[in-house]
Write a protein that binds this DNA or RNA. Structure first.
Length: 450
RNA sequence: GGUCCCAUCGUCCAGCGGUCCAGGACACCGCCCUUUCAAGGCGGCGACACGGGUUCGAACCCCGUUGGGACCGCCA
């Protein structure tokens, strides 16, 4: 496996909701395997549930995959040699296959439905690429709650195929070589193998992925917070970081490497190295991974990622030169785990308004104010509105404090507050330097510090 | 209840019979740096679920127990 160059894997979501974390994780591992082997990654839409499937969700899922950078080689939107790529368009295929089973006596009609007769006494060996060998007796592949054999519905009364049947037919005709899906499907696999056998088809290789759990160790669901990948986008997580984090759930590239890009992941990915244990989705780790990617980004990419969040705050980054914005963000350093936080923490670079609305300098006592006024006058006397170079500003400030019996802290904090409206920020002199003497004068004057 | 799966720090991963009184990362706690907060540096806390085997030797192999999970729809 793996090196024959003909690997064909697929991600087969049903369009009954947005792309959620579990689905994204599955899609991601399929993508990794396809890219690692140089094979094909196929997107198939499983829309046999007429009630719940919508075209809108189909689009949302594709958007989610694109957001994560999971490009597919064949799919409903781009075609391919193994179509159709929507189950609703392969009705004749299911029909024919089910007729074949009726003719061979392996299935029977029940009204409009077609039911597969589950054989007894057959051994089913599932050789999973991740879980290893799993043995199941055929009569246990599909049971009622009381333990009696339950035949498998192939075609529903409405004429649509059931999941277990459609998957087999699709994977067969689409030449899927390896089925990579969530571990919750492991119990379905023996049923599917039975159908492959009855049809005389060769089953693909199977690889089941460990589940992703919430903090309570239960299968991830809406009550664990964000489920759609787009909610992570809205929270300020970078697609590269979500990709990285998801890849880490059940796998590592090895060598203590934890922060990586898609290329490295694809290059070093191995199905055989995937963990069996379900993984807990840990926000703290996601935050960390996101922050690492944020720090590693190019200034331009970072600016592009943060701008939407400033706009959301009613700010207009476009009124500044791009260089200024990029420098401001670079100055922010490791502050902020997400682009949303970064935008919020750095709002004062974009506009003075948010500063005014959150800071009023009321804690500054008259004597303190007098010291500040003297200091700022001195600094403007010395530097004017230009040449605000951080190191020189700081040197001057330290020197002035020493000569005037003041502490650096007692001028730095009010200055920070006047400039940013926050008690937390990058170094004041670097901030002041970037904003420029003129803008600083406006802000300092507003608080009568000068 | 039945079937199947899983089992290393709180969490994510290393480990695939000896080099492990178990390694890295996140989180947490100290210290350093320092005009604030991050970042960064240094250090600390912290796990092989339990019991039997097999073996000269087990976190690694086998069995059992316990714990956890998934599935048991004419949903996918």
């Amino acid at each position: 496996m793996g090196t024959d160059g003909n690997v064909r894997v697929r991600f087969a979501p049903s369009p009954t909701g947005a792309l959620h974390i579990g689905g994204a994780h599955t899609a991601l591992f399929n993508w990794l395997w396809a890219r690692h082997t140089g094979g094909s990654f196929i997107l198939r839409i499983e829309d046999t549930d007429r009630e719940r499937s919508t075209a809108e969700y189909e689009r949302t899922i594709m958007d989610g995959m694109r957001w994560l950078g999971l490009d597919w080689d064949e799919g409903p939107d781009k075609g391919g040699n193994h179509g159709p790529y929507r189950q609703s368009e392969r009705m004749d295929g299911y029909r024919n296959a089910s007729e074949l089973l009726i003719e061979s006596g392996r299935a029977y009609r029940d009204g409009e439905a077609i039911i597969f007769r589950v054989p007894e006494g057959e051994k089913i060996l599932l050789d999973d690429a991740i879980y290893g060998e799993i043995n199941v007796a055929s009569e246990k592949a599909s049971m009622n709650q009381d333990g009696s054999i339950k035949d498998i519905v192939l075609i529903k009364s409405d004429g649509m195929p059931t999941y277990n049947f459609a998957v087999v037919v699709d994977d067969h005709f689409m030449d899927i070589t390896c089925v990579i899906r969530g571990e919750d499907h492991i119990a379905n696999t023996p049923k599917q193998i039975l159908i492959y056998r009855a049809l005389g088809w060769e089953p693909p290789q199977f690889a089941h992925l460990p589940m992703i759990l919430g903090g309570d160790k239960k299968k991830l669901s809406k009550r664990h917070g964000a489920t759609s990948v787009f909610e992570y986008n809205d929270m300020g997580y970078l697609p590269d970081a979500v990709f990285n984090f998801l890849a880490l759930l059940g796998w590592t590239p090895g060598g203590d490497v934890e922060i990586f890009d898609r290329e490295l992941a694809a290059r070093s990915f191995e199905l055989s190295k995937v963990t069996k244990k379900p993984a807990v989705f840990d926000m703290d780790k996601l935050n960390y991974v996101n922050q690492e990617h944020l720090k590693a980004m190019s200034p331009e990419a970072r600016r592009n990622a943060v701008e939407p969040f400033w706009r959301e705050l009613g700010l207009h980054p476009e009124k500044h030169p791009e260089k200024f914005i990029e420098d401001a963000l670079t100055l922010m350093g490791g502050r902020g785990k997400t682009t949303r936080e970064l935008a919020e923490y750095s709002d004062y670079f974009i506009d003075f308004e948010p500063v005014k609305s959150r800071y009023d300098a009321s804690e500054i006592t008259p004597p303190h104010r007098e010291v500040l006024r003297k200091f700022f006058c001195a600094i403007y006397d010395r530097f004017g509105d230009r040449d605000w170079e951080p190191a020189r500003l700081e040197e001057f400030a330290r020197d002035w404090c020493e000569k005037n019996n003041a502490s650096l802290k007692e001028i730095a904090m009010p200055m920070r507050l006047a400039l940013s409206g926050r008690k937390v920020s990058p170094g004041v002199f670097e901030m002041a330097s970037l904003m420029g003497g003129e803008e600083c004068k406006i802000r300092l004057s507003n608080y009568q510090f000068i």
